[in-house]
Design a protein around this nucleic acid. Structure first.
Length: 329
RNA sequence: AGGCCUGUAGCUCAAUUGGCAGAGCAACGGACUCCAAAUCCGUAGGUUGGGGGUUCAACUCCCUCCGGGCCUGCCA
């Protein structure tokens, strides 16, 4: 009885932060016990928005891999690979592009949203529009049946299912329709009170030094309705409390009344949070430093992952091409 | 390939007939706060895309190269 296969990916756009850990990486680590996991470092997807300075992508791949391994992704259990090192995925993407109607892509909420949000950058490109098609290629190249996604990625998975149905209808049954594993994305707030995100510059990185963590927590946004020490606080609107709650649920239960009754001040709370974060992160960071000293081992992990991924994708691509009448000339 | 527009601080944009390169936001520092935010005060930030030319003097005019946008044409 073989395990169900999962595919998930992350774009190497920088070092990971607490939000990545809570929203994605911790799930990845959990899933590797239960599923046959393929975790993709999506450098081609990174290129859709960062094509103007691609030099950083290379460094980011290494940083991301260090974060993965330090926090417990196990290359013995899961396959970690680089998207562009499995070129058959790109070929699959090309095949899918032939049967994907433009309207499906233009209707994508993420497309419209990102277009408006990143208006300063030039992303009115072909590759950007086709982003979800490449995602579909990722998934079906492995015949993955489960895809862990956050709420915002659900439309993409639905698109993938539509493309799969279209392919199977046109050329004959081949791909399973991937199902979402809806992962609850705990809403982690960044240092400015907005959603923690690299592009907002409000993230606490998994690899931040103690000094950086101290500096970031010290300048963190707090309840603006509590200008004075004696005022009652509103913990649910406070990102400091949000993080406390995430990393020390039992302690935060005691902090809540102390905050609302003005017994505990914000700077006390920040001190507490700083200590908790330092304590939480330091073992991983030690592990990370050890790993960083072994570039040969990192390379070996990637080589092996790429090879394993490629073996599978190669077969699936051959099947797809046969179905589409591209073999046997 | 041709036509039109465009390039100024990290970002968005000003600068009179050719006359000392500026503002807002962001950043940093200070005041205020238990911190932070907001607010107030202050600081820093530039080879005006590159090179050449005209001029006493060029962001401004001319030539050229590089980058970007819109339109037309051509091929599929």
């Amino acid at each position: 009885m073989s395990k169900k296969r999962i595919l998930s990916g992350m774009r190497p756009t920088g070092k990971l932060h607490l939000g990545h850990l809570a929203g994605a990486l911790s799930n990845w680590i959990r899933f590797q016990e239960e599923y046959d996991c393929f975790y993709e470092i999506a450098d081609l997807h990174a290129l859709t928005t960062d094509y103007q300075n691609p030099s950083g992508i290379r460094d980011n791949i290494r940083e991301m891999l260090l974060d993965f391994l330090a926090f417990g992704l196990d290359p013995e259990k899961a396959t970690i690979f680089i998207q562009s090192k499995v070129p058959e995925i790109s070929e699959m993407h090309l095949l899918l592009s032939m049967i994907t109607p433009l309207g499906w892509l233009e209707r994508c909420p993420t497309y419209k949203e990102q277009l408006a949000q990143l208006a300063d950058r030039e992303i009115t490109n072909y590759g950007f529009l086709g982003y979800p098609v490449l995602q579909t290629a990722d998934i079906i190249s492995f015949k993955a049946v489960r895809v862990p996604v956050g709420e915002d990625q659900v439309p993409h998975l639905e698109l993938a299912r539509e493309i799969v149905r279209r392919f199977n209808f046109l050329y004959g049954e081949l791909f399973p329709e991937p199902e979402a594993i809806l992962t609850v994305n705990p809403k982690l707030l960044g240092t400015d009170g907005r959603k923690m995100s690299k592009s907002y510059g409000n993230a606490i990185l998994l690899a931040d030094t103690p000094e950086e963590i101290r500096q970031k927590t010290a300048t963190m946004f707090t309840d603006p309705l509590r200008p004075y020490r004696k005022d009652p606080g509103h913990p649910d609107a406070c990102p400091v409390f949000g993080l406390l709650q995430m990393y020390r649920p039992e302690e935060s239960a005691a902090v809540r009344p102390a905050c609302t009754s003005a017994q505990l001040g914000c700077s006390d709370c920040k001190k507490k949070l700083t200590e908790i974060l330092l304590e939480f992160l330091s073992p991983y960071q030690r592990k990370r430093e050890e790993l960083a000293r072994e570039p040969g081992r990192l390379q070996e992990i990637l080589d092996r992952g790429n090879r394993r991924a490629r073996e599978i994708v190669n077969d699936v691509l051959a099947e797809a091409k046969t179905k589409m009448g591209l073999y046997g000339y």
